[in-house]
Structures are given as C-alpha cells and as structure tokens.
Design a protein around this nucleic acid. Structure first.
Lengths: 332, 332
DNA sequence: AAGAAAGAGGAAAACGATTACTCACATAGC
DNA sequence: GCTATGTGAGTAATCGTTTTCCTCTTTCTT
C-alpha cells in the first residue's frame, strides 16, 4: 500500500492539491461543497499530511526544544511535563534534551535543535551562551529557574529571595538562633537568591551572619549528610538548618538522626522545592513549595506567544512566581 | 543575514550542490581537493544542513519516539535518559511523549509520531493497540517493562518473576510466615509477574497462599499506607510485606511506624525497583534492583538495529534482564 | 446592461536537500 | 591511433506541501 499524499486526495475529489491544502488549513477560499468532499476523502483514505514537507515549505516546525540538566530530577521532570502539557494541545511537539549538567552537551544540543529548525527554546540549564548561535537565527528563548549569563533573556523563576527569607524566618520564629545554610557550591542563580533571602531574614531579626554556618555542598543527599556530620563532629553549635533543596534537607536529617540529635526539638530544618519525599520523611520536612507546573506552563505560554506574535509583543521579560511555606514536622 | 543553504556553499566553492551533498555524506566520488574546499566553506560560513529537507527527500527522520506513562516517575525517567544517551550519539533525536497513563493520549501521540515520520518507537506504557496504525507504516516498535496486548512485539523487561521470587524468599528466609503482597490493581504485566514469583516462592517453601494477604492498591504512597493501616486495624496477622514498588514499600513502612510496629523486628519489608528514596528511608528499604539504564539502552540498541538492518535481522524478540536483591535494613 | 467586485479554484514555483543520469576528460591497453 | 575504463562533477527530477498569481464565473451596483 503506497503512501497517500495530498495529490491523491486532490485526484480523488477532482480538485487541485491547492484546494485540498486550503481546506486543510482553512485558509483561502473554497465552497462548502468542496470542503465536505475533501474532508470526506481525507477521512476515508486516512490521509495524514506530511509534517516534514509542510515544515520545509513553511519553515515552521511546530516544534520546540527543551534543554534540561537532569530529567531524573523530579523538580525538572515536573516542569518539563507542564511544558509538554501546554504545548501539545496547541499543536507543538517538544524535544527534550538532557545535558547531564554538561556545558558541552548543552552546546551540542542547541546546535542540533537549531539545525532541526525548532520554533523556540526553553532552557532550564542556566546555559552560558545562548546568543551567538541562536539569536542570529532569531529563535526565541525562554529560561526557567537558572539565569544565564546573558542578561537580555526572558526568565521565569520562583521568588527565591522571598523563599529564602520565609524559610529562615520560620526557623527564627520557632526559636532558632544559629542557622546553618546548605547551598549549592556551583553558585547557580536560584541558590544565590535563596542565600540573599537568608541574609535578609537574619538581618531583619537582628541575628549575625556567621560565615562558618554557610556551607557549600554538592547537591546530593550524601554531601549534605557529610557536611552536617562534620559540623557535629567539629562541635559547631547550631539549632537550625536551611537546606537549599529538599534532598539536602533529607541528608541533613539523616545526619542528625544518626547522631541522635532530636529533630525538631534540638535542631529544626527547612528545605526547598517541596518534592515528593519531603512530605513522607519522618519527621516530614518543612519546605518552600515551588509551583513547578506553573513555571513550565508560564514559560511555554510566553514562548508560544513570542513565536506567534513576535518578541516585542510580550511585555514582561522577567516573570517571578510566588512561593509558599509548607509547615511540617521538622519545624515542630 | 539570510539563511545559508547547500546552494550557497556550492556557489561559493564553485561546484554544484550535488558535489557538496556528496562531500557532506561522504558518498559518491569527488577529489580530495574539492573535499577540502567544500569543508572549508562549510566551516567558514557555519553552514548546517537543513534536516527537514533532508528528511523529506530521504524519508528518514533520524528521530525516534518514546512513549512513557509518567516522566516524573524516577523509574521511567532513568530509562528514558538511557535511551537518549544511546540514541543521540548515533545521530538520532528522541521525542518523549508523556501519556499520564491515559490510553487516549497514547493513541493521539502514536498518530502524531507516525505523521512526524519517526523511524521507530519505544513504548513503556503497555499500549493496547500498537499495530493497526503503526505496522502498516512499518514503523518498528520495541516495548519496555509493560507487555502490550499484541503478542508479536519485541519486549525488553526485567526478570520480574525471579524478582518476585527473590523478594519473597528473602522474607521467608528471615523468618516471615505471613507475607502480604501489595500489588498494582491494574494488573499490568510486570506486577503480574512479580506476583507469580511470590506464589512460586511460597509454594517452594511450603507456605500457603492466603488471598487475604494479596492486596490490590493504586500505586502511590497513600494507597499503600491506607491498605496496611486497614490490615492492622482489622487485626489481620502478618509479619512480612512484599511491596510491588518501592513507593508502596515506603507507604507500608509509614503505616507500620505510625502504629508502632517495629520494622524489621515485627514486620519485614521488601520493595521493588531500587529508586533513590529506598536507600535513604529509615530503616532503609530492602529491594529488588532493576537496571533501568540497561533496559533503556538495550531497547534503544535493538530498535536502531531493526531500523538499520530490518526486523528479520534481530534474533531474540524477548529480552529479559537480570535483577538483583539489595539487602537493607527492612529485612534486618 | 455594463463594469466592478468577489468567490472558487487551478498551475506552477518555491522550500533545501538527495540521487539517478549524464558527460567530459584522462589514462591505459591493444 | 582508437577504444575501453574510471574518475570527478554537473543537470535535473524528486520528496509533499504551501502559496502566489492567475482565470473564470457569478453577483452586485448604478
């Protein structure tokens, strides 16, 4: 059975392929009668337009690329899912590219997506070098969560400063005086902002900023556990931990339990992200909720808007989404 | 700056576009001299071949589709990542389609991918109806984990029967006599097989199969917790739980803790999958490790093999990957 | 009733590659 | 010197759409 094209449909219905195309795209003029005929034939012969040919002709691929550092990270996975859920119903397909936090892969993927002719790009990786390649081709880019070096890019992010503030404030209000902060050693932008919030809260409540309590770690459970263990063994006094992510909070909790430090009685903990595990740990982890679905959805909306209406059409270049403190057991 | 095509390169180097194409694909004859010239121009003008045009002409898209029920599920995410890691270096791009366990979405995506002209399909969703649409177009399909209704499809899966057996055996050997099994109420194939292993182990060790201890649940923490809680409240006696997934094990553990049942002293637990959380819970969960990376990699390899060499070339239609018991604290 | 406007639809040129045919030329064999 | 062979490279058709011009009716306006 040979592949059925627009020409076959044209022949069958006795019109030209131009007309079939017009019916298909509801564009141009044709009578109601021909519309019916064409649609019937399409139905009957199960004709599906060849997207590749269409894409070549129109130079719009109806495809966007998403560059994500780690799809196995629940946080990113939720954002990516939200992007897909918004784009697919609007006729766009999504290429998901996992960089495994490698800048090299990131570059490779961008070239790749560019060659594929994607209509837009959403970037969660805090990519270093958007413009050189992409802006020349005028491919619109929206970034989520991590801010790239280029300033002129559209950002969607949570209000990390307020998040850091609320987390720290919660600890202070519950009586903590010496609050450890566990943060990403790479200094990516969201973590920086959380740290800013932490500092502000300390200042507002008249607590000193003790640099010894600000610990840079790799973002994984083991590093956090190790860091807190070292703190305990070094005899450093602290009564609160603001962990930059929930997994870090989880690691901290493990270390404390292992050394028979009571949580929340002796030390209180607040995490960040509100991933699944934080509600199920015991004690359950107080955390800052990021609305991942909203982040993905917003970014996708803005991107499609730019694709359809041009960059000038969009008003705000910097969208900050509200966060929320979720009180659980690690703060009593 | 206008887009630069193969013709521009041809004009610049003073050859025809045919020659440029030959150099590009290293196919046909040309002198070393022209090769250099062409490659230089390509480099200099940063020419990137238009994949869409190429795809239209060759009717090979160098693209495969992956249909996954839930990308936010760590288990699937790892498999998908492995697929990507194998395909991309070989020049294939991957469309990841998330069905959210909806059969309707699944169908929609398959049509979509077909229209897009993907060269192959990997399916993790236990899709009901592969063939009607896809086999006509001769698109090769490989399934992972869940077996679809059609029998004649290529499968890659873990040895779930042995997994179920090992899990149950571990519990028995550690002294359990009354072993609850928590399984997926939807009866998807991997879970069925784990159940088969459970039955076999009971039989081999002379324990009766008590249908009251086989509980169908939704696959989430809450359902598992609720189910175990109900068991406790109903006064049903049990001393072991074989949970069909680690999240179920986690839920079971929560319920037991809440009712001050000692784990592993009074009740032992074994999970399945070996996801991140199982090693970090307290007590850490004994589980059956599935090699997710290998699953994805194997499926991708087989698929690309079929794409390149035809279906007849591949020898085995059913690949079963070994699993491994990971002993942790919930079995003492 | 004549001209304008609008409606319906066809022909053919793109879009940017690949590739089956050519063909010119050089070399070799006789 | 003449034919066979091989090599490098060009011509043009093709993939399946969309879209720009046209053309031809039909209807409306005055």
């Amino acid at each position: 059975m040979k592949k059925i094209t627009i020409k076959e449909i044209a022949k069958i219905t006795g019109v030209s392929s131009a007309t079939v195309s017009r019916v298909l795209n509801d564009n141009g003029r044709f009578s109601e009668e021909t519309r019916k005929k064409v649609l019937d034939a399409i139905e009957k012969f199960e004709y599906r337009p060849n997207v590749v040919a269409k894409s070549l002709r129109t130079s719009r691929s109806k495809t966007i690329g998403v560059i994500v550092p780690d799809i196995t990270n629940e946080f990113f996975a939720h954002i990516v899912l939200a992007i897909e859920n918004l784009c697919v119903p609007r006729g766009y397909s999504v290429f998901i590219c996992n960089t495994s936090e490698s800048e090299e892969k990131e570059k490779m993927y961008i070239k790749d997506l560019e060659a594929k002719g994607v209509d837009g790009l959403i970037c969660l990786s805090g990519i270093m070098d958007v413009p050189a390649d992409v802006t020349r081709q005028q491919i619109p880019v929206v970034c989520i969560d991590r801010k790239p070096n280029n300033q002129h890019v559209i950002m969607v992010e949570s209000d990390n400063v307020t998040g850091g503030y609320l987390a720290t404030e919660e600890l202070i209000k519950k009586g903590c005086q010496k609050i450890v902060m566990l943060r990403d050693e790479r200094g990516v932008s969201p973590m920086q902002n959380r740290y800013v919030g932490y500092q502000q809260a300390l200042a507002d409540y008249g607590l000193p900023l003790d640099k010894n309590l600000v610990i840079n770690v790799q973002v994984d459970v083991f590093s956090a556990k190790r860091a807190i263990t070292e703190l305990i063994q070094a005899g450093v006094a602290f009564d609160g931990v603001f962990a930059g992510t929930d997994w870090l909070a989880f690691g901290a909790l493990m270390a404390l339990k292992e050394h028979h430090v009571q949580v929340p009685e002796q030390v209180k903990i607040v995490g960040f992200d509100n991933i699944t595990v934080s509600q199920f740990s015991s004690p359950a982890i107080t955390t800052i909720h990021q609305d991942k679905a909203k982040m993905g959805e917003t970014a996708a909306k803005v991107l499609l808007d730019i694709i359809d209406n041009g960059l000038d059409h969009v008003k705000t270049r910097n969208i900050t989404l509200p966060i929320e403190l979720i009180r659980r057991e690690t703060t009593g």
